[in-house]
Structure formats: C-alpha cells, structure tokens
Design a protein around this nucleic acid. Structure first.
Length: 283
DNA sequence: AGTGTATCCTGCAGGC
DNA sequence: TGCCTGCAGGATACAC
C-alpha cells in the first residue's frame, strides 16, 4: 500500500504528535507483524522515548533514545494512528500492536492483511539494515548517473528494477508505473536497454512524481490513510495506474494493464513504445 | 542472474 | 442474498 510519498506523509503527521513520548508498555494483538516475540518486543521498547520520527524508503522509523530504532514496514494495508488518552478512532479496525505512552495516549499499528512488519534495531543492526537498501530517490546522492549505472548493470525489466528496494528505496508499483509513463519507457524493457538520455528522463520523472505525490499527501486507492486518518489527494493525478481501458491523457490511446513479475503494470502503448520502435540504441 | 510461482492475510468489487 | 473469482500501494523463498 504505502510507498515513499505515503510513508513521508505519515511521518510528517506523526512527528509532532509522538516525539517526546515514552513507551510505558506494549500490547501485541497479532504477533505475525513482529520479527521477534511479543515478550522480546515488550522488553525492547519499554522505557524508550521517541526522539524523532523519520523515514527510510517506504519504512516509517521511530527513532528512540539510546539510540535505538523501531522500523515499521507498512506492507499493503498498514497504518499508524496516534490516539490521545480515551480517544477512539474508526480507522483502528485491525489493531495489531499498541504502544502505550507514560503520559497517556497510545500509538496503534493497524494492519488488515498483516503483511507489515515492526522491528526493533540497535544502532549496529540499524546501520546494516539501512545499508542493505538503495539510495533515497529524493536525496542528492540519487543522480541521473547513479540511476543509469544501476540500470545498465541489470537485464531485469525496468519496472522490476525500480521495485527492488535494494536498488532504490521507496518506489512501489504505483509510482513505478507513473514515472515510466512520464518518461515514455515501456515497463517491460530490460533495464540495461535504456539509453543514457532516457535514464536521465526517468530520473527526472521519478523525482517529479514522488515530489508531486508528497505535496498531494500521497495516493489513496483503498486503504491508505495518514496518521490523522485522512486519505491522500494524488489519486486524480494518476496518469496510468488503475486506468486500464481509459484514454491516455497525453494521446488518447487506451491504457493497458500487463502482468509480469506477479504484479500489474499500466502503460500507454503509444507513449511507451517497445524498445525496437523507440529508435534508441540497444545495450 | 533472471523469472515464474507460491506464500503470508483480509476485504472488496464484480459476475452469476 | 450468496457464492465464487480475481484483485490489491509489499516482500520473500523456492525451483528452474
């Protein structure tokens, strides 16, 4: 469900509300979202104060004193909802984990499908984990050259390349389709077949679409909600994702859905031609 | 190295 | 109304 823009929106909503709160106790209602046991999780978290709320790729990170880190991967349907003492929220439909704070109130991790994961990391494990992910797409280190060199080393379909968090951290199925459409690249093309100038165009498209989506507070297809319970506003701005059969906003051609790598990709067959008819030089 | 497949889960939309 | 199938913003493990 949540990709980088949705995680970022959650972080921005959560930060002013939970920073400074100290964990008094935890309640685990579904232990399958934990990597450790509920007892271990309780021991790890108890007594820690939240010093900041951050993000790495599509993961929400609660930075704790110590320091230590609670990394929340929201899976498809995960959400984080802070509740004041006595407050109830209609968004809390499938509570999996609750962090109760000393000053009252709680932070609920809600997840209908429970594909999400919460893990407590010490600084060493945090470093290892963070280094296992690719660069942040909106950071200065993610340059057109970095993208081009990464793509050039792989023959996997470019859409799959973009979804691989070890290569680039934060892009999911929605924004992969959107960026590839903006860049005029067929999602099925081998990554290494993309010419340098198209790599530069894809870089720009990624940065643009992620930035615009953040400004719209993310995309709500069905489940996504920010920390306040509000949906994102980027849905109407999607140009291809979920628009199978509808006209391309650029040229009017019917948008197609193609399935590979077990995921749907959406494209305009006219704006995103197969490699051989695009005139580019094949690698 | 790559790709297809299955798995973890629940919910919803659409067809009959 | 109910039953069935297919689909879903993710990630991983497996066999080929």
């Amino acid at each position: 469900m949540p990709e980088l823009p949705e995680a970022e929106t959650i972080v921005r909503g959560l930060r002013p509300v939970v920073t400074g709160a100290r964990v008094q106790r935890t309640r685990v209602q579904h232990d399958d979202v934990l990597e450790s046991t509920p007892a271990r999780f309780a021991r790890d978290l108890k007594g820690h104060a939240i010093t900041d709320v951050s993000r790495r790729g599509k993961n929400v990170v609660l930075v704790l004193d110590g320091p230590a880190y609670l990394v929340v991967n929201l899976g498809m349907t995960g959400g984080l909802y802070p509740l004041a003492a006595g407050q109830r929220s209609p968004r809390v439909t499938h509570p999996a984990v609750r962090l109760y704070f000393e000053a009252g109130g709680q932070l609920v991790y809600n997840d209908a499908r429970r594909f999400g994961r919460l893990r407590f990391l010490d600084p060493r494990a945090w470093g290892d984990w963070s280094r296992s992910l690719g660069p942040e797409p909106l950071s200065p280190e993610f340059t057109p050259e970095v993208l081009a060199s990464g793509l050039g080393a792989s023959r996997t379909p470019v859409r799959n390349w973009l979804l691989d968090q070890r290569r680039l951290a934060g892009v999911g199925n929605i924004y992969a389709s959107e960026a590839l459409h903006r860049a005029g690249i067929d999602p099925r093309r081998p990554a290494s077949s993309i010419a340098p100038r198209d790599c530069a165009g894809l870089h720009r498209s990624l940065v643009d679409v992620l930035g615009e989506a953040i400004r719209s507070r993310g995309t709500t297809i069905r489940d996504y909600r920010d920390a306040t319970g509000d949906g994102g506003g980027f849905g109407p701005r999607l140009r291809v994702y979920g628009r199978e059969g509808e006209p391309c906003l650029t040229c009017g051609t019917a948008i197609r859905r193609v399935v590979f790598g077990n995921r749907s990709a959406f494209l305009c067959p006219s704006c995103q031609p197969p490699a051989e008819s695009s005139g580019g030089i094949e690698a």
